[in-house]
């Protein structure tokens, strides 16, 4: 997923150890496994200068111990992406030249952490990303501007204004969201069936 894409849609890669003075990892759920895979290729002492921020979601017992075993200089475990973002903001505000950033996990996690990094003045192309886990989308309703989290269906109902939205592939890094546009604006009596496609 998704084979055919458009140029505003983020392209994710594979995390690999970068040359740098320090390393910040932000991951959720199965994103932890991307960090563990990177660790196999990392030079000795790499994690002694690393800060791992992990949002376990439902995968708690599976990854937490393995991540801690990497012995990062700092390890944080948060209950949700939203709860982790203030810490991420402060970490970036206090960061020095030579910090490398690695984001792994769901599109929502990568997008929101990227958004905070952009606000801190970091160029998006310098950030390593790797997708693991759910393809659920964050969607901005173009009509009311509300953001609906964890959208898995096409179409989807806006959690704010209730319009039935076509979820497009058009993506904004600044908003960390896909665009949702009313699917039945031309004939509101047409109510297409929802299909579960972003899993």
């Amino acid at each position: 997923m998704p084979a055919k894409t458009i140029l505003s849609r983020p392209v994710y890669g594979t995390l690999s150890p970068q040359t740098g003075k320090s390393h910040l990892f932000v991951a959720d759920a199965e994103g932890a496994s991307a960090i563990l895979d990177l660790a196999k290729k990392a030079p000795d002492g790499f994690f002694a200068r690393a800060h791992i921020m992990f949002i376990p979601d439902t995968s708690r017992s599976q990854f937490q111990a393995a991540l801690k075993a990497l012995k990062p200089a700092q390890f944080y475990e948060g209950p949700s992406i939203a709860a982790a973002l203030p810490r991420l903001r402060q970490t970036l505000a206090n960061a020095h030249m030579g910090l490398r950033i690695y984001l792994a996990g769901t599109e929502g996690l990568i997008g929101q952490a990227m958004q905070v990094a952009l606000e801190a003045g970091i160029d998006h192309s310098s950030i390593q990303t790797e997708h693991r886990g759910s393809w659920a989308r964050r969607v901005q309703c173009v009509h009311c501007k509300g953001i609906t989290e964890n959208v898995t269906t096409q179409p989807a109902t806006c959690a704010h204004c209730g319009l039935l939205l076509l979820v497009r592939d058009h993506y904004s890094r600044r908003l960390a969201a896909f665009q949702g546009v009313c699917i039945n604006a031309e004939d509101p009596s047409e109510i297409p069936q929802k299909e579960e496609i972003f899993r």
């Binding site: 458009i6 140029l7 505003s8 173009v142 501007k145 592939d169 904004s172 890094r173």
Partner: peptide, 16 residues
């Protein structure tokens, strides 16, 4: 939508 596309580069805002 300007609100959605602001901050995008030439290829990104023409993506659709």
């Amino acid at each position: 939508s300007l609100d959605f596309d602001i901050g995008m580069n030439f290829f990104e805002w023409h993506a659709p």
